[in-house]
């Protein structure tokens, strides 16, 4: 465990807290992509199958359960709970996620670490997480403006991935047998997707005013 990874996990938890607060207190899922939340639920449910046989630490296992529970709760609330479910706009949030799931599944089958079923599913979840934010970014693009809390949510997610990149660099230089090409590649792609958002997020927050984040 190193500080980058710890802060990365805390930032990931923060993103869940922000989103859960927004949809439960704000009673609205406007501006939140249910598609992205569904992809995250698939990512965590598939990646953490090893909960039952891989025990690395209590911290690890506890957060796996937390991430599965939170992502499932978010999907449930936006899909089924009133009044949030009425604030979700299927016309706007209509990114064809099958075009993300399909290629990731093929990639998981072809490029993985060990050719066992779990390794294929695990690799699938790594690739899927890299692109899971796309429906959300498309939704924000369509809306042009980003609601304040939503912008903090996406920023927290971006920070989590950026900190994980630093964690991999740190581990690469401090551990001798640390090699995770799949994770490094997918994580770099994923962090790249946030760069554009961060630029607009920074522009809008720079003035210190809470001007809404404007995407072109």
């Amino acid at each position: 465990m190193n500080i980058f990874r710890f802060l990365g996990d805390m930032s990931h938890i923060l993103s869940f807290v922000i989103l859960l607060l927004k949809i439960t207190q704000g009673k609205s899922a406007a501006g939140i992509s249910l598609r992205t939340q569904e992809l995250y639920m698939i990512v965590f449910c598939s990646r953490y199958l090893d909960l039952f046989w891989n025990f690395s630490s209590l911290y690890n296992s506890f957060l796996k359960v937390v991430f599965i529970a939170c992502s499932s709760a978010i999907v449930y609330i936006i899909r089924f709970k009133s009044p949030q479910k009425d604030t979700w706009n299927p016309e706007l949030d209509n990114f064809p996620i099958q075009y993300l799931i399909g290629p990731c599944a093929v990639a998981g089958l072809l490029i993985n670490q060990d050719w066992t079923p779990f390794e294929m599913i695990w690799a699938f979840s790594i690739y899927l997480e890299a692109v899971a934010i796309l429906p959300q970014l498309f939704l924000l693009q369509k809306q042009g403006e980003v609601e304040n809390l939503t912008s903090h949510y996406v920023a927290a997610l971006g920070a989590y991935r950026g900190l994980y990149l630093m964690n991999w660099v740190y581990r690469y230089f401090t551990e001798d047998d640390y090699l995770q090409r799949i994770v490094w590649f997918a994580g770099t792609v994923q962090t790249g997707l946030y760069i554009d958002f961060f630029y607009h997020y920074y522009q809008s927050k720079r003035g210190g005013l809470s001007r809404p984040v404007k995407l072109p």
Partner: peptide
């Protein structure tokens, strides 16, 4: 390391 195969990250 063994079964974990480096999957000690979330």
């Amino acid at each position: 390391a063994g079964r974990l195969r480096g999957k000690d990250e979330l």
